[in-house]
Design a protein around this nucleic acid. Structure first.
Lengths: 147, 147
DNA sequence: CGTTACGGTGACGTACGCGTCAAGAAGTCT
DNA sequence: AGACTTCTTGACGCGTACGTCACCGTAACG
């Protein structure tokens, strides 16, 4: 028992004070992912849980990153894309050299995202039209062969 | 030479009258995809080019579908998702049984897309913030170690 | 003390979306 | 009749994003 204050965690998500660390299971439950996924993300340097012995403990930072990762995925970004964006989000004062490059990447991403948003809006209204058309067809069909 | 009116096509994208059929290469050039991609889509029943002997000829319908396919992909939909949506778009009067089910699928998709659009808007502004922050850092850095 | 529960590390498997040969048919040029 | 190009159908390969399985450690329970 190296560190009682950490080891003494029970299994009942007790309010999670902003700075608490989470075990892999708690993390999985909180974000609805599998342990495999979290380990995979760590192996790809998307998450950096600290270690208590062997066990992973996920910090507030990891939670923030995971949230962004999952959102990025819904937008169709690759994990590698996401890693680069996360790096942008968490840059200290170093890496000035890469900074310019990263900004360019982010700007490209921005315009891609804007385009995607516009197209998405269009697609939504088109799909809405199709749905109401289909609903009308369904109505007609019901009317035709009235049971 | 079975059908001269079709066989007599030269290689110079001559205006493409709305109802003209396209060879695989013309199709590829028009949409910037590879032949492999088009054959793959056909194998997955996303496209249905007609055949002149062995060769594929893509119709106006195929062009419309491909446009939607490519858009769907940018939204992160799987080809299977897209196939189902395309089916919705091109339903005649048959398949009344499946119609209701398909409408449900489409509606789920709709709400997914709306959520995605909202999140995307949020992500865009967040990313914009990050970029301007990064640009400020870059400026500071330039100022600090002025060459 | 055994068992149950949770966590860890490989390592292999898998679905998707094509890329990339290989080998042959079919038309076109000279 | 070659040679060339374009097209065809397999079939295998590959990167991504994990799933799954085997096996090991360790801590807690009864």
């Amino acid at each position: 028992m190296i560190c009682p204050c950490i080891t003494l965690r029970k299994h009942g998500a007790e309010s999670m004070t902003e700075d608490e660390v989470l075990t892999i299971r708690e993390m999985c439950d909180a974000f609805n992912v599998t342990p495999r996924t979290l380990r995979f993300y760590e192996s790809k340097e998307l998450l950096f849980p600290i270690r208590e012995g062997q066990k992973r403990l996920f910090t507030r930072r990891d939670r923030a990153r995971l949230k962004l990762i999952l959102r990025g995925k819904r937008f169709g970004f690759s994990l590698e894309d996401i890693r680069q964006l996360l790096d942008l989000y968490e840059m200290g004062d170093q890496q000035k050299t890469q900074l310019h490059e990263t900004i360019k990447v982010a700007q490209q991403r921005m315009s891609e995202m804007s385009r995607q948003r516009d197209e998405l809006g269009q697609a939504i209204s088109e799909l809405a039209e199709q749905i109401s058309w289909a609903e009308k067809q369904l109505d007609k069909a019901r009317h035709t062969d009235a049971a």
